[in-house]
Amino acid sequence: MKKYFVTGIDTDSGKTVASAILVEKLQADYWKPIQAGAPTDSDTIRSLVKGERKIHPEGIVLKAPMSPHAAAKLENINLNLTDIKMPSAEKTLVIEGAGGLMVPINDHEFVIDLAKQFEAEVILVSRNYLGSINHTMLSIDYLKSNGFDIAGIIFNDTPNPETESFILNHSNLPCLGRIDAMPVIDKTSIQSQLQNITL
């Protein structure tokens, strides 16, 4: 089973949209290990995919829309990586992280650590904005320095060829696609993006 862990350079990088596109492109299953707040990303994925895709129940659902470590403390939950068990899947599994790489699960573990625990290749979603080069390069440096298997980068939203070229040249990572800005995000617009993904 092929596994991809979708993470982003920040909370609003577009992980859920990228995940929906990947689920349709790869005809894959979807799973959200940690959900904090509502509506859930699983529900969003369900509303965006056309095919009969398997959306696995979340590993853990926390009520407060905040970082998992803080949301878990509000509910008196001692959250640890080993508590989260990957579902059994026959197809490719798209796993969506929560927030950016370094979002804490507890006082010593981070969301990105789930990628290594599940032996999943990391797909980094980079959204173009002022400062995104710095955030993207720092994210890549962390992934490389800590031995993560990186599948590549997806650029999201308004194109910036100079920014994208710099990131790709200096990271030596493949570009897995570019997601166009979508005024309306729905099943139709998600389908229109499938041709832009090269994975």
Results as ranks from 00 to 15, higher is better:
Thr163Arg: 09
Gly131His: 06
Ala98Val: 03
Glu75Ala: 09
Leu138Asn: 04
Ser88Ala: 13
Phe148Glu: 02
Asp83Arg: 15
Lys116Tyr: 08
Asp157Tyr: 13
Gly131Val: 13
Asn80Ala: 10
Phe110Asp: 00
Tyr129Phe: 10
Asn160Leu: 03
Leu79His: 13
Val125Ala: 07
Glu119Met: 08
Arg127Ser: 07
Ala70Gln: 15
Gly99Met: 08
Asn106Ile: 04
Ile95Ser: 07
Met86Asn: 09
Pro104Gly: 08
Leu93Asp: 00
Pro104Phe: 03
Thr136Cys: 13
His56Thr: 08
Ser165Val: 02
Gly131Pro: 00
Thr158Glu: 06
His108Val: 13
Lys54Trp: 03
Leu101Tyr: 03
Val103Ala: 12
Ala71Ser: 12
Ser165Ala: 01
Gly99Trp: 14
Leu143Arg: 00
Lys85Ala: 11
Phe148Pro: 06
Ile45Pro: 01
Gly131Ala: 12
Tyr142Gly: 04
Glu121His: 14
Pro68Lys: 03
Leu138Pro: 00
Ile167Pro: 05
Met102Glu: 07
Lys54Gly: 01
His108Gln: 15
Ile55Arg: 04
Val103Cys: 09
Thr92Cys: 15
Gly51Glu: 00
Glu90Met: 06
Leu93Met: 07
Glu164Ser: 06
Gly99Asn: 11
Tyr129His: 05
Ser132Arg: 14
Gly131Lys: 09
Pro87Asn: 05
Gly100Thr: 01
Ile123Ala: 11
Lys144Ile: 04
Val103Asn: 06
Ala71His: 04
Val61Gln: 14
Pro161Gly: 02
Val94Asp: 01
Met86Ala: 12
Asn106Arg: 06
Ile150Gly: 08
Asp141Trp: 07
Glu96Lys: 04
Thr163Ile: 07
Glu109Tyr: 03
Ile167Asp: 01
Ala151Arg: 12
His69Ser: 15
Leu130Tyr: 08
Val61Phe: 10
Val61His: 15
Asn128Tyr: 13
Met102Tyr: 10
Val61Cys: 10
Thr136Ala: 15
Phe155Lys: 06
Asp141Tyr: 10
Val49Phe: 06
